[in-house]
Computed example of a mutant assay.
Amino acid sequence: MVSWIKEVFDTEKPIIAMCHLQALPGDPDYDATGGMDKVIVSAKNDVIALQEGGVDGIMFSNEYSLPYLTKVETVTVAAMARVIGELRSFVKIPYGVNCLWDPIASLDLAAAVDAQFIREIISGVYASDFGLWNTDPGKTARHRLRIGAKNVKMFYNIVPEAAKYLADRDISEIAKTTEFNNKPDAICVSGLTAGSETDTQVLKVVKDAVRKTPIFCNTGCNKDNIERQLSVADGAICATTFKVDGIFENPVDYKRVKEFMDIVKEFRN
């Protein structure tokens, strides 16, 4: 069922760490004085700390591009491509990208920087903090083929942060129809916001609902709950727990990464 995970990450139940890029040109919080050099240095420091701490993969995202767009501007994709291009020589593990919240832009970026996966809101329609949030999974699937990115794995987030499915549907029903209609490479289950713990029971419901799709815990994993989450999930995507003092806005803390990954490796053994 999850053979592609072992092929990509060289382990079962991988931990994918987020590399949160500082605000980029065009973003409200962009530091024009520090410029792109500041963004690159910050990202490089985080990548080194994450890799030395032992994570299995990295995902670059424009996490500080708040408030997010559902159709990302060209300048954002260009800026992310520059950062990743300058850091590629430092990245020794599998990596993916996430242009919040635009799956087409994410695929375009993945194709440009040879990323192996994306994570996005690819299906469904939502009432969200960012307005009415619609998707077009058929267009996204065809776009992946059209740009030669058929080998880029697509992680479908079916519980988007700061949003709710517009129709009143049970999460198990959403998981089943997402798998049947879209054939996702993986399904992500999240908490309410970045850093919010994902309900293990919801993970279990989704895991039981699908037949062959890997399930990833998408938010809120920490050293105290990761064994419980991985007892259900096929992997996890982590960010806030790796930051200094566990605070979202802070840089990555190597010691926190190492402590977390030591627990994960012991669990996997």
Score class of each variant (00 low, 15 high):
residue 15 I to P: 05
residue 255 K to Y: 10
residue 93 I to D: 07
residue 191 G to K: 04
residue 244 V to P: 00
residue 78 A to C: 04
residue 221 C to A: 15
residue 62 N to A: 04
residue 58 I to F: 07
residue 63 E to T: 13
residue 84 I to T: 00
residue 197 E to V: 10
residue 67 P to D: 07
residue 69 L to Y: 13
residue 33 T to Q: 13
residue 22 Q to I: 04
residue 40 I to K: 13
residue 225 N to P: 09
residue 19 C to E: 05
residue 266 E to K: 15
residue 63 E to H: 15
residue 237 I to R: 00
residue 37 D to H: 08
residue 56 D to L: 04
residue 17 A to N: 04
residue 91 V to W: 06
residue 88 R to D: 01
residue 3 S to L: 04
residue 241 T to G: 12
residue 155 F to C: 10
residue 211 R to Q: 14
residue 130 F to A: 09
residue 169 R to C: 01
residue 199 D to P: 07
residue 122 I to M: 05
residue 69 L to C: 08
residue 151 N to P: 00
residue 64 Y to R: 12
residue 7 E to H: 07
residue 262 D to I: 11
residue 213 T to I: 14
residue 73 E to K: 11
residue 255 K to T: 09
residue 217 C to A: 15
residue 41 V to T: 08
residue 220 G to R: 07
residue 220 G to T: 03
residue 125 V to R: 08
residue 38 K to Q: 15
residue 268 R to Y: 00
residue 176 K to W: 02
residue 131 G to L: 08
residue 253 D to S: 14
residue 81 A to P: 01
residue 134 N to D: 14
residue 232 V to Y: 11
residue 264 V to M: 00
residue 47 V to H: 02
residue 145 L to Y: 06
residue 90 F to N: 10
residue 168 D to Q: 09
residue 137 P to T: 02
residue 166 L to P: 04
residue 56 D to N: 14
residue 158 I to H: 04
residue 184 P to V: 03
residue 134 N to R: 14
residue 123 S to T: 14
